[in-house]
Design a protein around this nucleic acid. Structure first.
Length: 457
RNA sequence: GUGGUUGUAGCUCAGCUGGUUAGAGCGCUGGAUUGUGGUUCCAGAGGUCGCCGGUUCGAACCCGGUCUUCCACCCCA
């Protein structure tokens, strides 16, 4: 033994029961994706650096895992950058590949690359891990799964309506009640900036506004002022801070605030359309809310913005997010293709379900019956029965060693296997099996057919 | 990237102002019980005190560095 083995920070091992629970979430999401007409694709774990770099802002670039070139990469390194110890500059000369940071940008690349093979509107889903060189904290990992559904090639607002329903369908079938699907619209945010005459400070403005529930009204105003937005300008949208009431009530106030902004009015129209449609269609469990402070970091959103927050009382960042990006593929030279999509944060949903104890007991895919091993002759007899059980769709196994009874029973107990079969000389002679229910401790003598029936139920 | 926090047995944790053989509960292994697990009783195994260095007669304990854990900021699923 050289040293204690370990895994990199922000990564995790998953035990059998954890994998079972994760699969349960993934299957639920996958089922709903397919019900809504999305088709799966997969893309490589790593992409060419230029595909990813510059797509997520400076902050994002810092968080992208870069892969060192093979061979004697330093020989080809940029000498000037090397001498200056300029990490940023030298990276491009020693690293040409990087781990995927999200699923949206690789999807955009996919669409552009395969545009001639795709039938538009193209609806795809993708469930794969992504990597970020972030510092881990609650619900934040350096390797985690995203579950994305996007549609490209359709400007229709019905897509947004469908995505809200998709969110609702997934969380409802996971048994997670009380999630809030928050909506906003980039055009509304642009409208605010226009109304206060600070259109060029849109990003600073929205980033500050996004922090409202964290640092409060005064904190937001202070940050806006620090970014050079005058207090007179902020005064003009004071009513934004006072927004309350239902989705439609907020809409009415916003109509008034944004009366002078064409783009702002457009954004409100979109929100109103979606809300009206959903009011008609209804949602199973989720709440829909209009949250004008929702900005989200990704600056490629151009229309709707979604974010899903966990039920009240669960301290967790967003468990899903998404929005419309009119020109995502534009960065890869294919303009005029609109896209809209949402993402589920599998790892965070896991933590929320765990915290609320919402995993069904049946998720753990456990073997139903263990056959006790009494020796080679008996084992063969058992394996014939096991073969028949497996053919009938029942998970069964033989204890591989002729170990002490106590050890074998204990093994079944520890693995929480519900049934144990004992078949020794007596049983073989009669062509029977002794079936033991591990929970009740009851035993009965049965033939193969009865065995199937009892264990199968 | 910034600030804080954590690390002692497989797990959860004690361990006094630095003092000699580092403890508990649970778990694990064996036995009581040669075709019967969970309960009980008995016995046993298991620790470079995260790692490296320093101070000291002496360090799990003090100091420095480093890794790790968790949390907040930034950003984000």
């Amino acid at each position: 033994m050289a040293q204690k083995p370990s895994i990199p920070k922000g990564t995790r091992d998953f035990s059998p029961s954890e994998v079972a629970k994760r699969n349960f979430i993934m299957q639920t999401i996958r089922e709903q994706f397919e019900k809504f007409g999305f088709q799966p694709i997969e893309t490589p774990s790593f992409e060419n650096s230029e595909t990813l770099m510059g797509k997520y802002g400076d902050e994002g670039d810092r968080l992208i895992f870069k892969i060192l070139n093979s061979g004697d990469f330093l020989k080809k390194a940029n000498q000037e950058a090397f001498d200056q110890k300029d990490s940023l500059k030298i990276t491009s000369s020693i690293s040409e590949k990087a781990l995927r940071y999200d699923l949206t940008v690789p999807f955009a690349r996919y669409v552009v690359q395969h545009r001639n093979e795709l039938e538009f509107p193209f609806k795809r889903y993708q469930i794969q891990p992504v990597w970020r060189a972030d510092r881990p904290q609650k619900g934040r990992f350096r390797e985690f799964f995203q579950c994305d559904a996007d549609v490209v090639g359709s400007d229709s607002l019905w897509q947004e309506v469908e995505f809200v329903q998709l969110y609702d369908a997934v969380f409802s079938s996971l048994g997670l009640k009380g999630v809030t699907i928050k909506m906003n619209n980039r055009k509304v945010l642009s409208g605010f900036a226009e109304v206060i005459g600070e259109s060029d400070k849109l990003i600073d403005f929205t980033v500050a506004l996004d922090k409202l529930d964290k640092i409060g009204e005064d904190g937001v105003k202070k940050e806006m002022q620090e970014k050079g937005i005058s207090s007179e300008a902020i005064e003009k949208i004071q009513r934004v801070f006072d927004l309350h009431g239902s989705f439609s009530e907020k809409i009415e106030v916003l109509k008034d605030i944004l009366a002078t902004s064409e783009i702002g009015k457009k954004g409100i129209e979109e929100l109103e359309f979606i809300n009206n449609a959903l009011a008609e269609l209804g949602l199973y469990e989720a709440n829909l809310d209009l949250d004008v402070t929702l900005a989200r970091g990704l600056n490629y959103y151009t229309g709707a913005i979604f974010e899903v927050s966990a039920p009240k009382g669960v301290a967790m960042g967003s468990i899903g997010g998404g929005g419309r990006y009119d020109d995502l593929t534009g960065i890869f030279g294919m303009s005029g293709v609109s896209g809209v999509g949402i993402s589920f944060g599998l790892d965070r949903i896991y933590l929320v379900l765990e915290e609320l104890d919402l995993f069904p007991e049946t998720v753990a895919g456990n073997v139903r019956v263990l056959f006790i091993n009494f020796g080679n002759k008996e084992s063969l007899y058992c394996l014939k029965a096991i073969k028949a059980l497996r053919a009938a769709g029942i998970a069964a196994e033989l204890y591989p060693e002729e170990a002490k009874m106590k050890k074998q029973m204990n093994h079944a107990n520890k693995r929480e296997i519900p049934f144990v079969v004992l078949a020794g000389t007596k049983e073989i002679e009669d062509g029977q099996f002794t079936l033991k229910d591990m929970k009740s401790g009851e035993q009965s003598t049965v033939n193969l057919q009865e065995l199937k029936e009892k264990i199968g139920s």
